[in-house]
Computed example of a mutant assay.
Amino acid sequence: MKLSVALCTYNGSKFIEQQINSILNQTTKVDEIIVCDDKSTDATVSILKEIQVANPCIVIIENEINLRSTKNFEKAIQLCSGDYIFLADQDDLWNTEKVAKTLAIFNENLTAEGVFTNADLIDDNGTKLSNKTIWDSVFFFEKEMQKPIDFVDIIFKNGNIVTGATLCIKKEVKSFIFPFSKDNLHDEWIASLLAFKNTLYYSSENLISYRIHDNQQIGMKNLDKMEKITRKKRVILGLDIPNSFSEYRFLLKKIFLKKKEIVNFQKYNFDFIDFQKLQSENNIEWELISEKTKSAFPIRYKITSLIDAILGKRTL
């Protein structure tokens, strides 16, 4: 069994040595670390080359042009030769047992093709920010959700809950994820396809420390807004019942957006996605929530439905 890490860098000199060392110091050693540097203008590559001298498992690829995060990860994953491929950001820290505990989830779930985990949140200095985790920041209330979890429903209504820096995939996944969609970030794209296949699994352990800092290309945007939008997110996820017209309206909007996303995926012709079944289930949910909204708020429902029809909203 060969283990790979797909690591993308861009001007990451401040934290890259700490991250590389956390990957090298795993209880279960990785065989290769494929680093794709996206035209860094700082000392990132120099630092990597210094570490590489004593660690030939590190392979450094310097991009000729700046690809940005999603395309850079596409390239890095393609270059990995391992049976399992761990995705990594340049500024995080891995728990020493991240690799071992992730592989254990695969071993316990033989149909798994991808495993993601929870994570602590840390600042520039590596100090834990709070008792909140990365799952809190993406509103993945795993403990309260009905099992098995419907990841398609969550991703298309709530938003992506799979942070790429925590994700590991089997090499077989490479046969259907390329090329990455232009409309999705790399982790959302991979997570969506694994969700469709019902091969996405997780560990609730915090197996990395995810760093929050000002120079992130992509990072957590919700930390200062979490309390304000948690109620709506809980309604979307079916954990709380809507108690106002605006909440019913918001839920209907998200159900429609899920339908729209499913339609968008049809153009890729994935044979493992039962689009007819998904659309049927979504239509049933739409009708059910529509009837509840109409019953609870008949006049407002009639007026907003008329306005939607005039403006062409909620139509594909």
Rank of each mutant, 00 (worst) to 15 (best):
A6D: 03
N11Q: 13
G12A: 03
G12P: 00
K14Q: 13
Q19H: 04
I23A: 02
L24I: 12
T27S: 07
T28L: 08
D31N: 00
E32P: 01
D38A: 10
S40P: 09
S40Q: 10
T44K: 01
S46F: 11
I47V: 11
E50Q: 09
V53I: 15
A54M: 12
P56L: 06
C57R: 03
I61C: 01
I65E: 15
N66T: 13
R68Q: 14
S69G: 10
T70C: 12
E74Y: 02
E74P: 01
C80T: 04
S81E: 02
F86H: 08
L87R: 00
L87T: 14
A88G: 00
Q90W: 12
W94N: 15
W94M: 15
E97S: 11
A100S: 09
K101Q: 10
L103N: 11
A104R: 05
I105Q: 11
E108K: 06
L110H: 00
G114N: 03
V115Y: 12
L121R: 08
L121P: 13
D124H: 09
N125P: 01
N125G: 03
N125A: 09
T127D: 08
K128R: 11
T133F: 14
D136E: 11
V138C: 13
F141N: 09
F141I: 12
M145E: 11
K147Y: 15
I149P: 07
V152E: 14
V152M: 13
I154P: 04
I154S: 03
I155P: 06
I155C: 07
G164Y: 02
L167W: 00
C168N: 03
K170H: 08
V173W: 08
V173E: 03
F176K: 01
F178L: 02
K182P: 06
D183A: 04
N184K: 09
D187R: 00
W189A: 00
W189E: 07
L193C: 13
L193K: 05
K197D: 04
N198Y: 04
Y201R: 05
S203H: 02
S204K: 09
I208P: 05
R211A: 07
I229C: 04
I229M: 06
T230R: 04
K233C: 10
L239V: 02
L239M: 03
P242C: 08
S246G: 00
L251F: 07
K253R: 06
K253Q: 10
L257Y: 15
K258M: 14
F265K: 07
Q266L: 15
K267V: 02
Y268S: 10
Y268W: 14
F270C: 04
I273R: 05
D274Y: 04
F275R: 00
Q276N: 15
Q279N: 04
Q279I: 14
E281R: 05
E281S: 03
N283C: 12
N283M: 12
W286E: 14
S290N: 15
K292I: 10
F297C: 07
F297W: 08
Y301G: 07
D308Y: 13
G312N: 05
